[in-house]
Simulated assay, not measured.
Amino acid sequence: MKPGYGAGMPTEDAHWFVVDGRRWRRTDPALPEDVAAALRSHLGSARATVGAASRRGDDDAVAAARRRVGIAKHGLGERGPKWWEEPVEARVQRAREALTELED
């Protein structure tokens, strides 16, 4: 299971998971479940595309898929600004914008 999806032990502040001694930022718990689920779906698809493109040796496809991984992770709050330091409205808006970008 990937970090942020229930794997590992949460830290005391609940902002991170620790898996095998490595700290991973958790998905923003304030995101609407439908938005978070859609972003996780895009994230999984993009990660699979990274692997397939890498096996084919298609560097352009790997770069494009990694960009999509980054967009999804930013939308989920797992990268970029620390979600716990921002207003909920801004976090939800960023997630919705990431989802819109991934669906285009």
Results as ranks from 00 to 15, higher is better:
Met1Asp: 13
Met1Tyr: 13
Pro3Trp: 00
Pro3Glu: 03
Gly6Phe: 11
Ala7Trp: 11
Ala7Lys: 09
Ala7Asn: 11
Met9Val: 15
Met9Ser: 15
Met9Thr: 15
Pro10Trp: 07
Thr11Leu: 10
Thr11Val: 10
Asp13Phe: 06
Ala14Ser: 14
Ala14Glu: 15
Val18Gly: 03
Asp20Arg: 12
Gly21Leu: 02
Gly21Asp: 04
Gly21Glu: 05
Arg22Pro: 07
Arg22Gly: 10
Arg22Ser: 15
Arg22Glu: 14
Arg23Val: 07
Arg23Pro: 07
Thr27Cys: 10
Thr27Gly: 01
Thr27Ile: 14
Pro29Thr: 08
Pro29Gln: 05
Ala30Arg: 11
Ala30Asn: 06
Leu31Asn: 01
Pro32Gln: 12
Pro32Trp: 09
Asp34Ala: 15
Val35Asn: 01
Ala36Asp: 01
Ala37Met: 08
Ala37Ser: 06
Ala37Arg: 04
Leu39Lys: 10
Ser41Val: 07
Ser41Pro: 02
His42Ile: 04
Leu43Asn: 01
Gly44Thr: 09
Gly44Cys: 07
Gly44Leu: 04
Ser45Trp: 04
Ser45His: 10
Ser45Gly: 12
Ala46Gln: 08
Arg47Thr: 04
Arg47Gly: 07
Ala48Ser: 14
Thr49Arg: 04
Val50Thr: 05
Ala52Val: 02
Ala52Cys: 00
Ala53Tyr: 00
Ala53Trp: 00
Ser54Cys: 07
Ser54Asp: 11
Arg55Ser: 02
Gly57Tyr: 01
Asp58Cys: 04
Asp58Thr: 00
Asp59Tyr: 00
Asp59Phe: 03
Asp60Thr: 08
Val62Met: 00
Arg67Glu: 14
Arg68Cys: 01
Arg68Ser: 06
Val69Ser: 07
Val69Trp: 00
Val69Tyr: 00
Val69Met: 04
Gly70Phe: 03
Gly70Trp: 03
Gly70Ile: 02
Ile71Arg: 00
Ala72Gln: 08
Ala72Tyr: 07
Ala72Asn: 07
Gly75Ala: 13
Leu76Gln: 02
Gly77Tyr: 07
Glu78Ala: 10
Glu78Thr: 08
Glu78Val: 02
Arg79Val: 15
Arg79Trp: 11
Arg79Pro: 10
Pro81Ile: 13
Lys82Leu: 14
Lys82Cys: 12
Lys82Pro: 11
Trp84Ser: 14
Trp84Thr: 10
Pro87Thr: 15
Glu89Cys: 12
Ala90Phe: 14
Ala90Ser: 14
Ala90Pro: 09
Arg91Cys: 08
Arg91Gln: 12
Val92Phe: 04
Arg94Met: 13
Arg94Val: 09
Ala95Val: 12
Arg96Tyr: 11
Arg96Asp: 13
Ala98Pro: 05
Leu99Thr: 06
Thr100Ala: 13
Leu102Asp: 02
Leu102Glu: 01
Glu103Asp: 15
Glu103His: 14
Asp104Tyr: 11
